[in-house]
Design a protein around this nucleic acid. Structure first.
Lengths: 315, 315
DNA sequence: GTGAAAGCGCTAACAT
DNA sequence: ATGTTAGCGCTTTCAC
């Protein structure tokens, strides 16, 4: 492994001169610069980035905590982050958490250990109280709103989006409305139930199924909903793939969409376009892009991204 | 920033002792170990990972070169890689290339600069000749077959899968068959055309559209195909989302699937399940998992992953 | 079992 | 304009 010392020796200059040409400093004599450049070329030399990161104390790398690594919603956020990272010449390291508190803390420790300049939390298992101390070691941005002033947020107003979706259903005359969520313990679920109550007055647990991530989960959820004595006339799915599964099961039961069952999905994914499913687009790619911008600016702003409903034929 | 020296001083031991407890060495007196641990706790100390990586010459990080960061096929590969990385406690850094030769070389240089222990190339713009020299700096694994012995491969037999797909169509009586690909200059496209010729004898350029990545691209491709004087009776799409777009356009023209137009997609994505599209599943998640295993073993094996066709209602 | 000291490869302050 | 040198924070001989 050839290092900066070797280059200096071979070029007949000091290491600082080599360092200067490496970093495009002005005050280097043309001939020395050229000779250094030639030796670098000859020796096929590349500086050790770890040494540089050690000295500079920064890595131009951002860690992104993702609960699932095969989920289309989080892929959209990641996509937005990568778009911007490419633009700004930053690297992105993906940190899969599977909602494990320990994993999350492990990743935050990596921020502390100077591996990343900042971290984007797309979703989290830990309390903010355990996360916030790590803001001392790098910028931390969340894709979910929090009032904590130490945390930058690129988020959208979930509650309000849920309200809109349920209201849309109610306006169409639906009162027996079911819905699915991903994690029973999540904020989203809480907000969803809250919005449900606000729109429909009361919430019946039988109309809610949690643990829905993919098409198959939606299929099973529909199986449950549609065999209820008072079967729902509409369902709001937490994702278009889940919605697709619901659609499929409903069809398998000879139900007409939307006449017999209305369906709304989320995130405006290809499957929703393909199947004609009405969806609320949370603009996750934009959320990712904005999150990246905040994290490299070390900004603690709270930026709200607007969502919008895309009406198709399933409602 | 408190460092190992501070801990040593405060614990009344030498830095080497601190290092020993940090790395769980045996020969450390119980009391010294405890005192060190206590000071570490008190000072809330975390070792600087860059310094460690510098010394060790390894980072337990793998770089993954991806041409697109919003493509479901590459997301599947990445998914597989992340699964295994989590299992083996490695980090994954995503390297978006948009098929730029310069970007790719930039990433390979990062391997050389010791940022990654290895690199997985999911798809590439550069010739192997320019890539291979970098195998001197870390293990390089490809998700596409190459005979070069320096490169480990986790791949599937594309040619044979194309053959199967076309043959399936031919067996169903289709002779005017169109197809889409992503990049005109790619190996996949070449192999697709080769397979086409092998099955159907001759290849007519009007039956091929390149540059297809998403649903909308498929929609436009179908628009082209279906307005041809001799319109195709079947189309093989390079992805289920593209297939979905084709499906949608065909439907918009009152065509029946598969009676008027047969459609095969690729990668067994949710949209294909939702829309009932026959697909050839290249098992990209498994390819990603295997690629990861090879790269951390620094193996140069060529591992072929079997594909399989999932028949649904579009053929 | 423990510590002193030599590096890992680089940057930057300081001197010239 | 250029070189010397002191670090960055850690690991790892080597000696005791």
């Amino acid at each position: 492994m050839t290092n900066i010392k070797d280059i200096a020796r071979l070029a007949g200059v000091s290491v600082s001169t080599v360092s200067r040409v490496l970093n495009n400093y002005k005050h280097v004599a043309r001939d020395k610069r050229e000779s250094v450049l030639r030796v670098i070329e000859e020796m096929n030399y590349t500086p050790n980035k770890n040494a540089i990161d050690l000295i500079r104390g920064e890595t131009r790398t951002i860690g992104v905590i993702l609960p699932y690594n095969n989920n289309p919603a989080f892929d959209q956020i990641l996509n937005g982050i990568l778009n911007k990272a490419l633009e700004h010449d930053f690297s992105i390291t993906v940190l899969p958490s599977i909602y494990s508190k320990e994993k999350e803390v492990e990743y935050l420790k990596k921020l502390k250990s100077k591996l990343y300049d900042g971290i984007i939390i797309t979703s989290r298992a830990n309390d903010w109280e355990t996360i916030i101390p790590y803001t001392g070691y790098g910028s931390i941005v969340s894709c979910e709103y929090t009032q904590h002033k130490e945390i930058g947020c690129s988020y959208m107003d979930r509650y309000s989006s849920y309200l809109d979706a349920f209201q849309l259903l109610k306006n169409k005359g639906h009162y027996a409305v079911a819905f699915t969520t991903a994690r029973i313990e999540s904020n989203s679920t809480k907000q969803m139930i809250g919005a449900y109550k606000e729109v429909f007055g009361e919430f019946q647990p039988k109309y809610h199924i949690s643990g829905c991530l993919c098409l198959e989960d939606g299929y099973k959820a529909a199986e449950h909903f549609l065999h209820l004595p008072e079967r729902p006339t509409a369902v709001y799915a937490n994702g278009d793939e889940v919605a697709g599964g619901i659609y499929l099961y409903a069809k398998s039961q000879q139900l007409k969409i939307p006449a017999d069952l209305a369906i709304i999905g989320q995130e405006n994914q290809p499957i929703g376009i393909g199947m004609g499913i009405t969806t609320v687009d949370h603009q996750l790619t934009k959320i990712g892009e904005q999150a990246f911008s905040l994290v490299i600016k070390k900004s603690r702003e709270k930026v709200k991204i607007p969502y919008h409903i895309v009406e198709r034929d399933s409602v």
